[in-house]
C-alpha cells in the first residue's frame, strides 16, 4: 500500500462525524452513517470539521492518507450528506433574492464607523489579536484563490478571461515570490507563527471552517458556479477597505514589513479585482446565463452571513 507522507497531519476530531471521517482516512474505522448529518448542527464544529477534512483531500491531502481516497465513493456519499445539511441551512438562513444590483450596491457603500473585526483591529487590536486573526485566516489565506480556480472550466468568454486574469494576479503573475498565499506566509512569519500549511487546523473555529468550506462547496460543484462567482465578488469588493484597516493595525503594532505588505498589496490589488469581477466576471456570466443572477446573489449573501458569524465569534472571544 502506498502511504502518502506529504501534507499536514490529520486534525483532532470534534465529535462523531469528524471522528468517523478521520478514522476512515487512517484506515482505522468505519465511516459515519450519512443519515447522522441530518441531526448535526450545520454550522457546528463537528460537521464543519468533517466537511473540511473531506474537502482537504482535493487540495493537499493529509500525511499518511492514501491519495485514492479523494474519490472514494462511500466517502463522497458522506461528504454529500454533510454538504446537503450545510447548503440547506444556508439557503434557509440567507434570504433568496434575484435583486443582484441591490445586493452589490449594499457591498459598495462603506460605513464611516463600522463595528466589525477589521475596525476593532484597526483601533484597538494588539499583537495577540493580530496573531489570533492570522491563525484563523491562515486556513484560507494559505490556499488563497485555490478554490476559485475550480470555476474556470465552467465559465466562457469574458467571464473566463476576467476570472483567469484575477487568478493570475492572485497567483503572483508568474512570479513565485508574489503568490498571495506566500505573502500571507510572510505575514505569519512576522507575527512569529508557524507557516506550515494546515498547521493551525486544530485551532480553526467552526465559523472559519464554514467560510473555507463554503468556497470549496461552491468551487467543486459546477451547478453552484454562480454562487462561486458571487462569493468571489463579495471577497474582492469588501477586501480593499478592510485590508487598509488591517494594514494600519499591523503598522501600529510594528508587526513587520511582510505583515504590512500583505494588506497594502490587497488594498491596491483588490481595488482592481473588484472592478474586473463586477464588469467582466459577473457581467460576462450574466450575458451567457441570465438566470444566474439569483445564484450570484446567493453566493454574496451567504458569504456575508458566514463572515458575520466569524466576526461575531472573534469579537466575542476578545470580549468586546
Amino acid at each position: 500500500m502506498t502511504r502518502h507522507r506529504a501534507g499536514p497531519p490529520l486534525p483532532r476530531a470534534r465529535g462523531e462525524l469528524s471522528a468517523g471521517v478521520i478514522a476512515f482516512l487512517r484506515d482505522d474505522g468505519a465511516l459515519p452513517d450519512p443519515g447522522a448529518a441530518r441531526d448535526a448542527d450545520p454550522y457546528g464544529d463537528d460537521l464543519q470539521l468533517a466537511l473540511y477534512v473531506c474537502y482537504e483531500l482535493h487540495y493537499r491531502g493529509f500525511a499518511g492518507v492514501r491519495p485514492e481516497l479523494e474519490w472514494d465513493p462511500p466517502l463522497l456519499t458522506v461528504r454529500g450528506a454533510l454538504e446537503d445539511r450545510f447548503l440547506t441551512a444556508l439557503r434557509h438562513d440567507v434570504p433568496a433574492t434575484d435583486e443582484l444590483d441591490g445586493v452589490l450596491e449594499g457591498l459598495l457603500v462603506e460605513p464611516i464607523r463600522g463595528s466589525g473585526v477589521s475596525w476593532f483591529l484597526q483601533d484597538l487590536g494588539e499583537l495577540r489579536h493580530l496573531r489570533e486573526y492570522a491563525i484563523q485566516r491562515s486556513l484560507y489565506h494559505l490556499k488563497e484563490a485555490d478554490p476559485h480556480a475550480w470555476v474556470l472550466p465552467r465559465l466562457s468568454g469574458r467571464a473566463k478571461a476576467g476570472m483567469a486574469a484575477i487568478e493570475y494576479d492572485e497567483f503572483g503573475a508568474g512570479r513565485a515570490d508574489r503568490v498571495h498565499a506566500g505573502l500571507f506566509a510572510g505575514l505569519m512569519s512576522d507575527l512569529g507563527l508557524d507557516t506550515a500549511y494546515g498547521r493551525y487546523l486544530d485551532q480553526g473555529c467552526a465559523p472559519m471552517l464554514a467560510l473555507v468550506n463554503v468556497m470549496s462547496l461552491f468551487g467543486l460543484h459546477r451547478r453552484l458556479r454562480g454562487a462561486l462567482v458571487g462569493h468571489f465578488a463579495a471577497v474582492e469588493i469588501t477586501s480593499s477597505p478592510g485590508s487598509r484597516r488591517l494594514a494600519h493595525a499591523m503598522k501600529r503594532n510594528g508587526a513587520g514589513p511582510a505583515a504590512e505588505f500583505f494588506y497594502t498589496e490587497h488594498v491596491e490589488a483588490d481595488a482592481v479585482h473588484e472592478q474586473v469581477v463586477r464588469r467582466d466576471v459577473i457581467g460576462g456570466l450574466l450575458d451567457d446565463e441570465p438566470a444566474m443572477a439569483t445564484d450570484i446573489a446567493f453566493g454574496i449573501t451567504a458569504t456575508s452571513y458566514l463572515e458575520e458569524r466569524l466576526g461575531d465569534r472573534m469579537l466575542a472571544d476578545w470580549k468586546v
Binding site: L108, V109, P111, G114
Partner: peptide, 22 residues
C-alpha cells in the same frame, strides 16, 4: 495614483448598510 476604493459612498451611523462587519 492607484485607487483604494475611497470613492465609495459613505453611510452615516444609523444609515442602513450591509457593510459594517468586515
Amino acid at each position: 495614483p492607484w485607487c483604494d476604493t475611497s470613492h465609495r459612498r459613505r453611510t452615516q451611523p444609523g444609515e442602513k448598510s450591509r457593510r459594517d462587519t468586515g
